[in-house]
Design a protein around this nucleic acid. Structure first.
Length: 570
RNA sequence: CGGGGCAUGGCGCAGCCUGGUAGCGCAUCUGCUUUGGGAGCAGAGGGUCGCAGGUUCGAAUCCUGCUGCCCCGACCA
């Protein structure tokens, strides 16, 4: 590609609404342009990156036996009503209606549509397993779209769906996708982790997330220093340490005027947060127990997902309102404690090991000190309710846990029969009986991968693309070509040589000053650069500089292609 | 959804409080000079000041309503 025939929309100025580095750089380098909240146009340079990511995904999907198809973005409400998600999915689902007033949604995901296809097309176990995928624009009406392509409302996603006759088949399909994902992210060249995850609202059991590690990531990724264990914060198992100490004090009333939070409490009673018990009241799942109490240690945080996964707790998790609190305790939030509460009470494993602790007295402005399980109140119902913290033991038994930030770029699920049952997707088995299909689904946020790659690879000059997804692999920058036939011809020849060698090369033939050319190409993030100038040609040389290199090196003119091929291979 | 803020050439902003000929930087265009790290000088074009009402002789500016966008908030026991 010749830059003069391409479109390069770089700017020196920073857009005022871009908060994170990938958003700023994508805007400045002219990769994306904003149309509306969470809506972006992919400009020609940006689209080249997207297409390269897609190409890698397609190759690895094909290698893993998945078949590409393309489903409609607009989906009839009936299908979503059949699966129950028309009501369950909530406001993130963009609902629209046509001229006949029929309801539709713009697909945030395609489990329903693919299951509908499969139930019509796949009749026999002999046609299994199948795995269909598409690369398509999705729409999710996010509460707060932000960070440019990172959390856009409209974005490009690869979504694959596998169907098998039994659990063993599903496991095999899942493992194949897992392996394919590993190859994809390896090839793209990102630092990432595959982590155990909660499957969330899509339903089903097993799921693994793929996170690109970056400080700006919105998710907390937990990993072990001593094993391969990795999980996201929602899923990471919190293992208590030590044993419960013996009670040494008797239970006493403490006047705590104006104390509402754990911080207030530690100040008021002079005890560390680890000695305070936090009691949270949440809505229950049944009429019989409309309010449920959950206890965690004062220095710990309740894990919403773990709480929500308790059968007794209403989903989605919501805290009890003032009226509900008053219905079970004679006080307001801030003074709740487990002693004397006559509602279901679940206690985090670490909180269950506390002795002589402080907690609310269920009376405003009063707390209790010296409280002990098994003496002042029954032995607790123990559950895992909290977020892990750095230094917690590895649940597999070796090492401790560390927490880093990650950007979720892929998520693979074993859905099981959730959708096939709801939509009645069966095949006939060997015995001639109908068998409900077992389903898996596998997503990659293609456009988010691009943003994540930038978060992980940039410097003060701009983006540093991993070679595999760079918009161009190499740029040729002729210095003052307009004034020198020699420079122009040498650059042109080098360009053609590389182009014929199948290299994705950009010839920067714009009539610009060198500083501007260099700055543009570094901002755009092209991994390799060759400079052609009269001075260099006089010595029969070109100049080479890798995007991460501090200094340029001189190379013999004839070695340029060979040099590039060598660098590219390494 | 709650709170805060913004809306003025393509982009970033000032002007508004105290009503009176709409300005700056960047970008664009022309010319000359310059030429290995986002050049200099001279000149030019480009805005019914988000929309709708109101107050006024007169509104970017004051008032009302609307719309769009941005930011903060979902650990409170």
């Amino acid at each position: 590609m010749r830059a003069s025939e391409f479109f390069i929309g770089t700017t020196k100025e920073m857009p005022n609404d871009a908060e994170i580095i990938s958003h700023q750089l994508m805007m400045r380098a002219g990769f994306i342009r904003r149309l509306g909240s969470g809506l972006y146009t992919w400009m020609p340079v940006g689209l080249r990156v997207v297409r390269k990511i897609e190409a890698i995904v397609r190759e690895e999907m094909a290698a893993a036996g998945a078949l590409e198809l393309l489903m409609p973005a607009v989906q009839p409400a009936e299908l979503w009503q059949e699966s129950g998600r028309w009501d369950k999915y909530g406001p993130e689902l963009l609902r629209i209606s046509d001229r006949h007033d029929r309801d539709f949604c713009v697909g945030p995901t395609h489990e329903e549509v693919i299951t509908d296809i499969v139930r019509r097309e796949i009749r026999s176990y002999k046609q299994l397993p199948v795995n269909f995928y598409q690369i398509q624009t999705k729409f999710r009406d996010e509460i707060r779209p932000r960070f440019g392509a990172m959390r856009a409302r409209e974005f490009i996603m690869k979504d694959a769906y596998s169907f098998d006759i039994d659990e063993a088949g599903l496991q095999k399909s899942f493992d194949r996708m897992h392996a394919a994902y590993v190859r994809i992210f390896d090839r793209i060249g990102l630092d990432y982790r595959a982590v155990d995850a909660d499957s969330g609202s899509i339903g089903g059991a097993t799921s693994t997330e793929f996170h690109v590690l970056a400080d700006s990531g919105e998710d907390a990724v937990v990993y072990s220093t001593g094993s391969d264990y990795a999980a996201n914060m929602e899923k990471a198992a919190a293992i208590p340490t030590g044993e419960r100490a013996a009670a040494t004090r008797s239970m006493t009333r403490v006047e705590t005027p104006g104390v509402h939070t754990i911080d207030d409490l530690t100040n008021a009673v002079g005890q560390a947060a680890t000695q305070c018990l936090k009691t949270l009241l949440v809505k229950g799942a049944s009429e019989q127990a409309p309010v449920i109490a959950l206890c965690v240690r004062g220095d710990h945080e309740l894990n919403d997902i773990k709480a929500e996964n308790l059968p007794e707790v209403a989903e989605p998790l919501s805290f009890a309102d003032a009226t509900a609190i008053r219905s079970v305790a004679a006080c307001d939030a801030g003074s709740i404690g487990p002693v004397g509460l006559s509602i279901p009470l679940f206690v985090d494993a670490s909180a269950a090991l506390m002795a002589d602790f402080v907690c609310g007295a269920n009376e405003n402005n009063v707390h209790l000190g010296g409280v002990n399980w098994g003496r002042d109140l029954p032995e607790p119902e123990v559950r895992d309710l909290r977020n892990v913290v750095e230094g917690d033991p590895d649940p597999t038994g070796s090492g401790t846990l560390k927490i880093v930030r990650g950007i979720e770029v892929g998520h693979i699920f074993q859905l099981g029969t959730t959708y096939s049952e709801a939509l009645n997707a069966n095949v006939t088995d060997e015995g001639g009986r109908p068998q409900t299909l077992l389903m898996g689904c596998y997503g990659i946020g293609v456009t988010r991968v691009a943003a994540a790659a930038i978060e992980q690879n940039h410097d003060d000059k701009g983006i540093i693309w991993p070679e595999a997804i760079a918009p161009f692999e190499v740029v040729i920058s002729p210095i003052h070509a307009a004034k020198s036939d020699l420079v122009r011809e040498a650059a042109e020849n080098l360009y053609l040589e590389m182009k014929h060698a199948g290299i994705d090369v950009l010839l920067d033939d714009r009539p610009l000053r060198p500083g501007q050319m260099f700055a543009d190409m570094e901002l755009i993030g092209i991994p390799h650069r060759f400079v052609v100038s009269d001075k260099l040609l006089a010595a029969d040389q070109f100049e080479y500089k890798g995007r991460r290199d501090a200094d340029a090196t001189l190379i013999p003119r004839g070695d340029a292609l060979e040099q590039l091929l060598k660098l590219r291979a390494s």
